[in-house]
Design a protein around this nucleic acid. Sequence first.
DNA 1: TCAAAACATTGAACTAGGACAAGAAAACAG
DNA 2: CTGTTTTCTTGTCCTAGTTCAATGTTTTGA
Lengths: 195, 195
Amino acid sequence: MDMYEQIDQSLSRYVSFSKEELEILNSLLEYRKVPKKTIMLHEGEVCNFEAFVVKGCVRKYFIDHNGFEVILQFAIENAWVSDISFSHYEDKPSRTFIETMEDCEFLIFSPETKEELLKRAPRFERAFRILFERNLSVTQNRLFNTISKTAMEKYLEFLEMYPTLPQRVAQHYIASYLGISAEFLSKVRAKLAKQ
Amino acid sequence: MDMYEQIDQSLSRYVSFSKEELEILNSLLEYRKVPKKTIMLHEGEVCNFEAFVVKGCVRKYFIDHNGFEVILQFAIENAWVSDISFSHYEDKPSRTFIETMEDCEFLIFSPETKEELLKRAPRFERAFRILFERNLSVTQNRLFNTISKTAMEKYLEFLEMYPTLPQRVAQHYIASYLGISAEFLSKVRAKLAKQ
DNA sequence: TCAAAACATTGAACTAGGACAAGAAAACAG
DNA sequence: CTGTTTTCTTGTCCTAGTTCAATGTTTTGA
């Protein structure tokens, strides 16, 4: 499957698009290869892309006032990553970083090309709204887990949700995603192992 | 200001609408008064409304496996409340409750009337997408706070964000929103008071 | 108006998870 | 292949926040 089929199928899960609409979509996307460990968005910058992950894995994170990363999102194949923290609409700089964790391939919108897509094929507005709804739903669920579950429970649920990630990324990133220290995750895993 | 002006102004912050578009909007909304302490959405139900709060205050929450509430959202005047946890699109029942905390007035969409609005005035799709983006941004920020800040810091930030809420709702709800115990919030406040 | 219920405070004992440190194991670049 | 860096583990000590319980305060509603 080529990457345009990949993104077309992914968006067609929410709304069914005509051949013409999909052609407009594909013609507006920019293909970009990005090597491992590249910071695609620095703190303070306004994010000027929305990227569909064709291949690879990125993380999006904040840095807290003690200098610790808090990972907000892992984006792997077929996920979208961007930072909309008010910044598009209020020109507030974001506190967010986006960084590749593997060599990656993306299909990318700039604000302008996205705008043009929505003008020429307005039905995409709906698909993107649904994407946001899901994203919100996932984030709310994660907030719930963060508040109400133990480290062990959170880790087990993480494994179900992202079964391949532990093989792909360093463990301390997972700890950061779960909101626990790397050392404590190690202890949780040790406990799990001897059961 | 009557309530239609109120909702029109609120949505016009994101997209400017014509008189005709706003008339369509207003004609499709249902006005509903709901007394205090009414559960508008029970766990397991599919949420069939999106409510704009004209007046009053509601909370949206999950119940964890120990029977404790975790508050996901307070919605006061000019906010929207609904539960989209996948349910609209996958018919999965939600774990969410929505409950009024004061006598409330709403302007309400059903899925059908919202659909009709978007068909007849598609530019609203954009305004609702922006609402979701902000909602996501707020939720991500809250996740960050929950993971990386102390109870004291979270409470202070909460006070800035919702300065009127402590006068309007019981303190243990605020504790639940912050992800700390009611007792500990009381201690945090005691500490604050003597400074 | 008053009893009941809900809410808030405070203290004492406890625990999940954090911070630090030191060593082992992997991964990585030259 | 080998030294360097990054990652992972394990132990010890520590603390922010929890739980439980008792008491006081406010709100409610009949």
